[in-house]
Design a protein around this nucleic acid. Structure first.
Length: 657
DNA sequence: AACATAGTTGCCTAG
DNA sequence: ACTAGGCAACTATGT
């Protein structure tokens, strides 16, 4: 009996490209009789990941461009976009389309691993062969971790050393010249509707979500959804996705050999816009519309022939890619806990304001947070919406919201301000906002960078604190960036542009904008604009925060410490510490931070639970596995029962200091 | 073992 | 306009 020719599903996910795809090459090497390029509209992304309109649009751009490129290679083919969860859909497709193989690119994100394990086991049960190839990073994160002694990669030198053991980064593979026909695409099976619970993206929609109305879309043609179908208003960002654009951007960067060879991240201006100072390739790497290995080798080619003085690792473009791999290598062994403090063996515990609520059933953050003081919540909201009264911070947050991208050092500035250098608010709050608004949001990189900036992992020089006044002055003394994104300040004199509250009233009136209030009003009498007063004395907050971090470093708890989970960490923090540290003795510590700033504690939650629901504190070890595969839809299940320990999954790996 | 140095990206003042 | 050193002080790594 001659073996029948392979009938292959190529499952596209975060690899929306045809060039340099080891997985796609593996699919084509099977010489299949038919190849189905498939995208499953995953409810995890639709409901559970936070995604604002700009990243939705970027994703649709990538899908449309990829689909067009597929059709260009084979007019019978396209990206078949099917509106159902992969966990329920793929097994039905195996049967309906007589599939023999499924091929996809490896994804080491915590959720992706769960999803893919599920699909792999269903494929095996159905007799479908699975082929998985790495292509998302320079090195396979799991191999990188193995070469790092099984430990998460926490520094760039570790990545370099581990990388050397793994040998040369894979050379890019050319895009295919042809693609096989797809087979019959009938969908003669029941449509499994997802449960939109929780739905973190409800706030993004102003119309009904119709993304799951029909398996093959409203026209039955497997088309890429429209923003309207998703219930979303149009994107505000000018940044557009897609492999075609990505390759053009790459060509432009590489053709500027001086830029490519001398690029040095700390020397690029975060105040530069239109054009920005860095490459803006990160969203393409996120969606896979540009291969990082292609960028790597094209940069290496330039470096090999460029005669002038070059920048070096870690500040050059190669270094940037190594940092990306470092974060993937930090995330890979830590799983879900990498994205939070509680349970994370490599993240310092600091008693931030607005700590996450934890689901006792799996030890994972729920997406909701405790409000330990109303003041901190106010600061958080003003930070998020660009109304802090610090123009540099507000301009960055508005650029983030409108355009979905800000310069890396701008991210430093706003992240430092929210956490260790201003508000003393939990980095998880900031990471959630970035997750929602960034077009290049990558869970490993976003998490890692927030830990870096909050000095909870990767970086520890907390006394180096970004000033919202001095820092932007270095590259933009005239405040052009602020004038663009905070136009109400556009006529302010240069000397007041970063601290407009210092301008005399006469100057404020002359510039057509009064500095007053807390951001609720934007326009006053006679068309006079209003910009808020600064929400605190920055230098005073800076001192409070540095003292508090220093103290927390001395207490020296990590996220996997039992005291973090059971609440007894409070006993280790004196009443004079910033943050919700007073615990049971809150009443005695009303104004005790030594800087004359009376702390405002809400009666409701000041001495309440932090990070963990206290009812659940008696939790004992119940099995070793808390991967949280059931995060969607069932997070309120089993309160008080079946909870598992938050610590010990990665126990014994790091000697505590 | 004790110590020195480096670490992608701080700020301020004096000269 | 630019640089050097002080500021107060963290961890990881190497000798």
């Amino acid at each position: 009996m001659a073996p029948s020719k392979p009938r292959v599903i190529y499952w596209f996910r975060t690899d929306l490209r045809l060039h340099d795809s080891p997985a796609l090459k593996a699919a084509l090497d099977l010489k299949p009789e038919c190849l189905y390029p498939v995208w499953c509209w995953d409810p995890h992304y639709v409901y559970r990941a936070r995604v604002g309109p700009n990243r939705w649009q970027y994703l649709l751009d990538c899908q449309s461009d990829l689909s067009a490129s597929i059709t260009k290679l084979n007019p019978k083919s396209k990206l078949f976009l099917i509106r159902e969860a992969p966990q329920t859909l793929l097994a039905k497709l195996f049967k309906a389309w007589k599939i023999t193989h499924i091929v996809f690119e490896k994804d080491t994100d915590a959720y992706a691993r769960d999803r893919d394990e599920n699909v792999v086991s269903q494929a095996k049960g159905a007799g479908v062969e699975v082929i998985i190839k790495m292509g998302r990073t320079l090195y396979d994160p799991d191999e990188l971790v193995r070469a790092n002694g099984g430990r998460p990669t926490m520094s760039i030198t570790q990545v370099q050393k581990a990388g050397e053991k793994l040998g040369e980064v894979a050379k890019p593979i050319p895009a295919p010249k042809f693609l096989p026909d797809p087979g019959d695409t009938s969908l003669d099976f029941e449509h499994t509707q997802p449960s939109p619970n929780p739905d973190f993206n409800n706030i993004q929609r102003d119309e009904d979500d119709q993304s799951y109305n029909a398996l093959a879309g409203p026209k039955g043609d497997f088309a890429v959804p429209t923003m309207a179908e998703l219930g979303l208003k149009p994107a505000s960002s000018q940044h557009r996705g897609g492999e075609t654009i990505a390759l053009k951007m790459l060509d432009e960067i590489i053709s500027n050999t001086q830029y490519t060879a001398t690029f040095s991240k700390p020397d690029t201006a975060p105040t530069a816009f239109a054009p920005q100072a860095t490459t803006l390739l990160s969203p393409h790497h996120h969606f896979g519309s540009l291969s990082v290995r292609l960028l790597y080798w094209r940069v290496m080619d330039v470096l090999a022939s460029y005669k002038g003085k070059q920048s070096t690792i870690p500040t050059n473009l190669i270094g940037q890619l190594l940092f990306r791999d470092m974060y993937f290598g930090a995330q890979a062994p830590l799983g879900y806990c990498f994205a939070q403090t509680v349970g994370n063996s490599h993240c310092r515990f600091i008693p931030w304001h607005l700590p996450s609520k934890i689901d006792p059933s799996n030890g994972l953050i729920t997406g909701d947070h405790h409000i330990d003081t109303p003041e901190a919540e106010t600061w958080f909201q003003r930070w998020k919406w660009g109304k802090t009264g610090f123009p540099w911070i507000d301009a960055l947050m508005r650029q983030l919201r409108y355009e979905g991208w800000i310069h890396h050092l701008g991210r430093h500035a706003v992240a430092c301000f929210l956490t260790r250098g201003g508000c003393y608010i939990d980095w998880e709050r900031g990471a959630e906002v970035f997750e929602e608004w960034l077009i290049d949001h990558e869970v490993a990189c976003n998490t890692g960078n927030w830990q870096w900036l909050s000095c909870t992992a990767f970086y520890s020089q907390f006394y180096r604190c970004y000033s919202p006044i001095a820092f932007p002055k270095k590259t933009d003394a005239k405040g052009e960036f602020v004038r663009h994104f905070c136009p109400e300040l556009k006529d302010y004199p240069d000397k007041y542009i970063y601290e407009p509250w210092k301008a005399p009233i006469a100057d404020q009136k002359k510039a057509g904008c009064l500095i007053k209030g807390d951001g609720d009003d934007t326009e006053g009498e006679g068309g006079m604009k209003i910009y808020p007063k600064p929400m605190f004395d920055f230098n005073a907050r800076r001192t409070i925060c540095i003292d508090a971090i220093k103290n927390a470093y001395h207490v020296n708890l990590y996220g996997d410490n039992p005291k973090v989970k059971d609440g007894t960490w409070r006993e280790l923090f004196s009443d004079s510490a910033e943050g919700p540290t007073e615990g049971k003795s809150a009443k005695d510590a009303s104004s005790a931070n030594g800087n004359g700033e009376a702390k405002v504690k809400s009666g409701e939650e000041a001495s309440g639970d932090m990070g963990v629901d206290q009812d659940e504190d008696e939790a004992a070890e119940v099995g070793g596995e808390t991967r949280g595969g059931d995060r969607q839809g069932k997070r309120k299940r089993g309160k008080g029962k079946g909870q598992e320990t938050l610590d010990g999954h990665f126990g014994g790996k790091r000697a505590k200091r």
